[in-house]
Design a protein around this nucleic acid. Sequence first.
DNA 1: ACAAATACCTTGCCAGGCGAAGTATATCTT
DNA 2: AAGATATACTTCGCCTGGCAAGGTATTTGT
Lengths: 114, 114
Amino acid sequence: MSIASDIIRGHTDTIILRHLAEKDSYGYEINKSIQEKTNNQYELKEATLYTAFRRLEKANLITSYWGDEATGARRRYYSITKMGLAMYEQNKEDWEKAKILIDKLISYGGAVND
Amino acid sequence: MSIASDIIRGHTDTIILRHLAEKDSYGYEINKSIQEKTNNQYELKEATLYTAFRRLEKANLITSYWGDEATGARRRYYSITKMGLAMYEQNKEDWEKAKILIDKLISYGGAVND
DNA sequence: ACAAATACCTTGCCAGGCGAAGTATATCTT
DNA sequence: AAGATATACTTCGCCTGGCAAGGTATTTGT
């Protein structure tokens, strides 16, 4: 919780892509994994998560298929595409650059040169 | 340019507050300073800048007054308030924490513990 | 029988970024 | 003197992404 959504905004897609880069997965599992990874400091809201899936699929960054669970609630699995992987790599690079810029811009007496 | 606005989103206020923490200033000057600091890699769009001023003033984080330029276009100067300073410090802390979380969530094979 | 956990989905609001267009003054160029 | 460019501010209206709220269905624990 607690982390401002405006700071995370724009990272949702990257976070999801990162998980799918490791293995096919489904919404609930991805979100649980985020919570574990951050020691419950962060989670995606369901609406955020599922609208992100729609967005990513529409952009051909992921594809989906229904799992064939014999038991339990049905799961829709997602797979990252080649384009999705490329986008993930790009977003990671962008993040590294953005981090430096933001640090420069919000730290007091920040350096001018690089 | 080029840096995705969704990544910067939410930092606009902090960036402005940081500049005003140093000295009273006006829109054009703040934006020029941002461009210089980032070697022209980033700038605030005018609409973004001025709507941010409205937002910050409404929230009592800054106050404004007209400069008494004898020549040149008129300038509206902004001053940070005590509340604004406190907000700036808070935002900086939040950013430090968010950075760690985001790094954890988007880097491949990221650590689980801290 | 009921609650809680797993798992998914959609509608509709809200906030923030920003493109586009406009106003006004001063300076530089031809 | 005319026109471009830089300084400086402002507002309107669109678009996008987060998410509260509400809903469905299955399984497991009490």
